[in-house]
Every structure is written in structure tokens, then in C-alpha cells.
């Protein structure tokens, strides 16, 4: 079997004396689609934020495409270039137009010239189906459109891996689908992705594996069918009964 794209080995993370991650072991291979779920405060976001070093893990090892994440700025930069991230609150740069939001990293980080960066930006704006919004500011867009721009912005760096941190949690219900559709398209095209989400429909239809976390630990890891129909752990059963009952 080929080397995994993401390897987390015995990873611990502390915030002060609070242990947010406990002995996390995870391997993700190229093209895999992982959904991470669990109650709030279970460490889901912290886990994926360790993958691109937005959080620094305290113990254990993390390898991204064979490169170990250490304090070395060079390694961190190299990993971040290959790992895209989509946030719950979009985090578009409010003082830049949509187009400039998309062009910024290709120009500064990938050193593309302006016309090449623009070409890349327009390509991905078309892919998320809002090329007509290119010259607007983020505040002029709906939440769903903003999140699609944020996905396009991450794609402009042609990442190997995309991390989604509750991408639909801040959206009005009628806008959730337009974002999920884009994510499903990406999944079908073979993008390696890890999604922290409560969208169980999405998990069922696209995930190769569902990971359930509670209290900083990976409690259960299974295929969606197994996970939803035959959960093993009591905490998983309780969680599923709570979110699927209404």
C-alpha cells in the first residue's frame, strides 16, 4: 500500500491543563473522504487544525505527505501550501474583492504573475458557479456564496488535501445545499478531504470513513453504513440518537 497522505501518531494536544486531544492515531490515504463528527468540545476542530499547524500538537508525530510537522517554518510553510482549509465563518478578506481574495495566495505564495493568478481564480469561481460575483466584496454576497468563494480560494492553491471545519454550521438552512453540492462535486472528483460536519446526509453519501470523537478521543471509526446502522460504542449510539431523532 502507498504511503498515507496524512499520518497522526499518538498525538496529544493541551490547552493549558485541559487535554483537547488524547492519543490520536489517524491515517488518511490519497483520495479518501473522511467525515469527522462528535459533540461540541470533542476535539474535532482541534484535530484538523493540527494538520495544517493552526494548532501546535504537544506530543506525538504528524506527517503530511511524508514530511513531519515540526517547529521548522520551512516545513510548516510547505505543508500549508499543500493543505487547503475552509472555515465555519468563511474568513474571506473583507477589504478585497472576491477576485483578489482568490488571487492573493497564488500570487504571493505560488509566485504566479497577475494574469496567470486571475486565470486560476476565474477557473475556480466558475467551478463553484459564481464567476459573475468576481468584482464584488464579500460583504455583498450571501453566506452560501461566501462559503463557495472560500472553497474556491482554497482550491486556487491546488491543494493535495482539503480540510473543512464545520463549513455549513454558520449558514442559513436554505444555503446549506449549495455548499454541500460543491463539496460533493469535489469528493466525486477524487479530492482528499476531511470534513468536520454535522451533515449526516453528506456523511452517508460521500464519506469513505466516518470518525466519531468524544472528549478528545477517536471513539469509533467505520464505514458510513457500519457507522449509522451498527454503531459499536455506547457514546456513538447516544450521539446518533440525539442528532438523528429530530
Amino acid at each position: 500500500m502507498t504511503q498515507p497522505l496524512i499520518q497522526m501518531q499518538n498525538v496529544d494536544k493541551f490547552f493549558g491543563s485541559f487535554q483537547a486531544l488524547k492519543n490520536i492515531n489517524l491515517e488518511v490515504h490519497k483520495g479518501e473522504r473522511i467525515v469527522v463528527c462528535g459533540p461540541s468540545g470533542s476535539g474535532k476542530s482541534t484535530m484538523i487544525r493540527c494538520i495544517n499547524r493552526l494548532e501546535k500538537h504537544n506530543n506525538g508525530k504528524i506527517f503530511i505527505a511524508g514530511r513531519e510537522l515540526t517547529d521548522s517554518e520551512k516545513d510548516i510553510d510547505a505543508v500549508r501550501r499543500e493543505v487547503g482549509m475552509v472555515f465555519q465563518s468563511f474568513n474571506l478578506f473583507p477589504h478585497m474583492t472576491v477576485l483578489r481574495n482568490l488571487m492573493l495566495a497564488p500570487q504571493l505564495v505560488r509566485k504566479n504573475n497577475k494574469s496567470k493568478a486571475k486565470e486560476i481564480a476565474m477557473k475556480y469561481l466558475e467551478r463553484v458557479k459564481i464567476p459573475d460575483q468576481a468584482n464584488k466584496y464579500p460583504s455583498q454576497l450571501s453566506g452560501g456564496q461566501q462559503q463557495r468563494v472560500a472553497i474556491a480560494r482554497a482550491l486556487c492553491m491546488s491543494p493535495e488535501i482539503l480540510l473543512f471545519d464545520e463549513p455549513t454550521s454558520a449558514l442559513d438552512p436554505e444555503m446549506i445545499n449549495e455548499v454541500l453540492e460543491v463539496m460533493e462535486d469535489l469528493a466525486n472528483e477524487g479530492m482528499t478531504m476531511i470534513c468536520v460536519t454535522h451533515e449526516m446526509g453528506f456523511a452517508r453519501s460521500v464519506a469513505d470513513r466516518v470518525i466519531f470523537m468524544d472528549l478528545g478521543e477517536i471513539v469509533e471509526e467505520a464505514s458510513p453504513q457500519e457507522f449509522f446502522e451498527n454503531p459499536k460504542n455506547e457514546r456513538t449510539k447516544l450521539f446518533l440518537s440525539q442528532i438523528l431523532s429530530h
Binding site: R81, L92, L108, R153, A154
Partner: peptide
């Protein structure tokens, strides 16, 4: 969050400060 988005895109500390 905006600075995190900048970090996640691979922008350096100086680039985040300037842009």
C-alpha cells in the same frame, strides 16, 4: 480568523501583516 485563513493559504508572517 482572517489571519488563520492567511496562514492556511501559506502566507508568511510578514505577508499576513502587510496584506
Amino acid at each position: 480568523g482572517l489571519l488563520e485563513a492567511g496562514s492556511a493559504l501559506g502566507l508568511s508572517r510578514n505577508q499576513r501583516f502587510i496584506y
